[in-house]
Simulated scan of single mutants.
Amino acid sequence: MGNKTIYLSLALIFLISFTSIANAGKETRVVASRLTLDLSIYGNIVTWAETTTDTAWMYNLTTGNITRLGHAGNSPVIQGDKITWWDYDKNIIVYNISTGKEIKIVGANTPSIYGDNVVYVRSKYEDGQPASHQNDESNSLYLYNLSTNEETQLTPYEHARFYPSIYGNKIVWGRANQVNSGEWSSNISIYDIPTKRVSDISRTGTAAGGEIYGNIVVWVEQKNESRDIYMRDIAKHETRQVTFDNNSTSADIYGDRIVWEREYWIGNNFSSDIYMYNISTNETTRITNSTCAGDPAIYNDKIIYVDTRDDPESQEYRDIYLYNLSA
């Protein structure tokens, strides 16, 4: 009993030392929306999907203009002046904000973009393979260059490659493997475009998600009902556990900062808030206190997230909020 008391005291000291509450910055509701998900931000442009209208949207933080991007828009991602998403027919759309022009990539899904490179997933059957593969769920990573209009297959077909993310010449994605009937494991893998080398970042068999910025990859490590955020410095070959609360998910990274959603219970009420981790200082900061915030994305000093504080019971109204760290 005495040892437990000591351990609890040390844990409390650790939290007091390394976790703080945001005391600077400004929170603003920027868009009133319903059933919002898949937020992305770059510069002053915010994108998201709305399931009530099956549409991808774009919002300009400077002008306040809202633009409907396309019907059946899933998981829009913005980088530079380009936005990409995929529809229910599994076609990828790449929209150029500057020119207003669109490019369609047929038969693919879950895109990510960096510069002129779009990375995405194609399944074996949808890629024009024989009908015998109709029930084969194997898929492969592909790369499309917007300048040359060339498509390149990056990996062999394998079961369950999902949600790639690209930065510079490196691509990360989740890879599920069937251990035996009804049992699966999942890893985080990385592909180096110049060398065509594939390597595993996480081999625990419980990894999900995966985002990359520079040399840092972040993901969610899930063990039974517990979920924590991990990061890997691929240049230094170092892995670090970011959270220790067993209830963290939806991680994103930009520069030296990682943001995520932490879930918890207040009595019988399910709650969630946004947290931020500074890689250099090893400091964790709580960004929101609404108990209704989730799905964050970050760009420089701007953190966006959805919040259901105006509709906590049904959580249908998922308004988009902005927290500006430098305001």
Rank of each mutant, 00 (worst) to 15 (best):
G2V: 01
K4R: 12
Y7W: 05
A11P: 00
L12A: 14
L15T: 09
L15Y: 13
T19C: 13
S20T: 11
S20G: 08
I21A: 09
A24Q: 09
R29V: 04
V31S: 07
A32D: 02
A32K: 15
A32N: 13
S40P: 04
S40N: 13
V46I: 15
T52D: 05
T52M: 07
A56F: 04
N60R: 09
S75G: 02
D81A: 10
Y88D: 11
K90E: 13
Y95K: 05
N96Y: 08
T99C: 03
K101Y: 03
K101M: 03
K101L: 05
E102M: 07
N109T: 11
N109Y: 15
D116R: 02
D116A: 09
V118I: 15
V119D: 11
V119L: 11
Y120I: 03
H133G: 03
N135I: 05
D136P: 07
N139K: 06
L141Q: 09
L146I: 15
E150P: 01
T152G: 08
T155F: 03
P156H: 10
Y157I: 06
F162I: 12
K170V: 09
K170M: 07
I171P: 07
I171C: 08
W173F: 13
G174L: 02
E183I: 15
E183P: 00
S189Y: 08
I190A: 15
I190S: 13
T195V: 09
K196M: 09
R203C: 10
G210V: 03
G210T: 04
Y213Q: 01
I216R: 05
V217F: 06
K223L: 06
E225I: 11
R227I: 02
D228K: 06
R232I: 01
A235R: 06
A235N: 12
R240N: 11
V242K: 07
D245S: 14
T249C: 00
S250Y: 10
I253E: 01
D256M: 04
R257S: 14
Y264F: 15
Y264K: 01
G267V: 04
N269P: 00
F270I: 01
I274K: 14
Y277H: 12
N278P: 07
N278M: 00
I279R: 03
E283M: 13
T284A: 10
T284S: 13
T285C: 04
S290A: 14
S290H: 08
T291D: 15
P296R: 13
I298W: 07
N300L: 09
I303F: 11
I304V: 14
Y305Q: 02
V306I: 15
D307T: 02
T308S: 10
E313G: 00
S314E: 14
E316G: 12
I320S: 08
L325C: 02
